[in-house]
Amino acid sequence: MTTPRQRPSGETDPAAPDLLQDPVAYLVGLQGVALLRACAGEHGPEFMAQRLVEIAELLRRPAALGEALPAQPLSVVDGYDEWSSSYDGPGNALLDWEIGYVKDLVSDLPPGRALDAGCGSGRHAQWLAQQGFSVTGVDTSPKMLALARQKLPQQQWLIGDFEQLEAADDSFDLVVCALALTHRPDPAPAITEFARVLAPGGALVVSDTYSEYTGSTRYPLVRDADDGSARYLPGWNHSLSAYLQPALAAGLELTAVHEPRSGPRTDPNLEPIPTPPGAVPNRWLLHTWYPAAVNAAYQGQPSAKFLRWKKSG
């Protein structure tokens, strides 16, 4: 199969494959991760035996898990344009959790000129402006940028690629790039560009999550489209070294790093939630069927990374 490649224009390569969303394969995969951890001594023989019983059950394919359906590739621009209508709404717990870490990394910095790279709906820019920063937001999604402009009309909002910024060297005292570099196959070009526009003594703050697909170098974000089909935004699962090496090469000094780890992913007391007929399998609903395996697979795994660098000078 070919690999999804994101074009500079934001269009998805037409050769990018559909991704089969098979609920049985997904859950058997998590059972396998749980079994590997049991083999390493994290769980005992009874836990291991129960996982094998559940795998046998899964292979008989419970109808309530839903059908295996393909997810079609979607460009990042189109994906976030579609997502804009609900992005700031309730139910996206990741955003509230992530912004807290970013605030901690920025809270001791003096106000100045801030670049919000991949600003989306302006959720970070809004807080930065409240702290006295003058904010420039850059994003490729027109609809996301419209939300940001509506919240903060007095700040500057630009359509563009943050790997090729129309800004002079040393233009900003702070650069924030939150949950955006996962959509780039290599974060190095963006980090190098951030270092270029960062003023001496300024700070670069980056946040990103690790892939929910444990062990994979890919991190597709699968979503339901308005027409009921499944689409995915291409993503990559970057190691810490993928961020650290280009930053060090650009002369940045690492001043803080946080790598929070996962707790339980699902409540073991929940009743299993069936997939509605014809609907795309939702992994969060699938987790309710085998909570012991799901929680064992993710427990203690790094879930996100938060980094801050300082530019010398």
Results as ranks from 00 to 15, higher is better:
G91D: 02
P200D: 14
V102K: 12
Q301W: 03
N92A: 02
S84H: 04
G118L: 09
L158D: 15
T3P: 14
Y290R: 07
D208K: 03
L20C: 02
G66I: 14
A296K: 05
T182W: 04
V294D: 02
H287N: 09
I273A: 03
E166Y: 13
L94S: 05
A203D: 01
V53C: 08
V53H: 14
P189K: 13
A190D: 03
S211H: 02
D226Y: 03
Y26K: 12
D104L: 09
V176M: 00
S262C: 13
G137I: 11
I273H: 05
R60C: 03
A180I: 10
A242R: 00
E42S: 11
S121W: 10
R308I: 11
T136F: 12
M48P: 06
I55N: 12
S121R: 07
Q154A: 11
T140K: 07
A225L: 07
L145I: 10
V24Y: 00
L74H: 13
S303W: 08
P291N: 04
A125N: 07
Y80C: 02
P14C: 01
G100H: 09
S107W: 15
V205A: 03
H124D: 03
E271C: 06
T182E: 01
D173S: 11
E193N: 10
G79Y: 11
L286T: 11
E42T: 08
A250N: 12
V106E: 12
A16E: 05
L270G: 01
L174W: 04
P14I: 09
F162D: 05
I159H: 10
R51Y: 02
E82R: 05
L94Q: 05
E67W: 10
P23R: 02
P264W: 05
A146W: 13
L65F: 10
L165C: 07
A292I: 08
P200M: 02
L20M: 10
A25C: 01
L221P: 06
S239P: 00
L244I: 00
A49M: 14
F194Y: 15
A114H: 09
L145W: 08
E11C: 00
W289C: 03
Y26E: 01
P291K: 03
F306S: 13
P302N: 01
A247R: 01
N92R: 04
L109K: 14
R37W: 15
Q21S: 08
E166C: 11
S84C: 00
Y290G: 00
P246R: 01
R61P: 10
E98V: 12
L248T: 13
R149I: 15
L147F: 04
G32W: 03
G29Y: 08
P234E: 00
D116G: 07
G66S: 14
L307E: 14
D13I: 02
T288K: 06
A250W: 10
G201W: 04
V135G: 01
S312H: 13
S75P: 07
N92F: 11
V175K: 15
L59F: 08
R51I: 13
F47Y: 09
P73N: 04
R60M: 06
W97D: 06
A249Y: 15
T2L: 14
L30M: 01
D226T: 14
P73C: 02
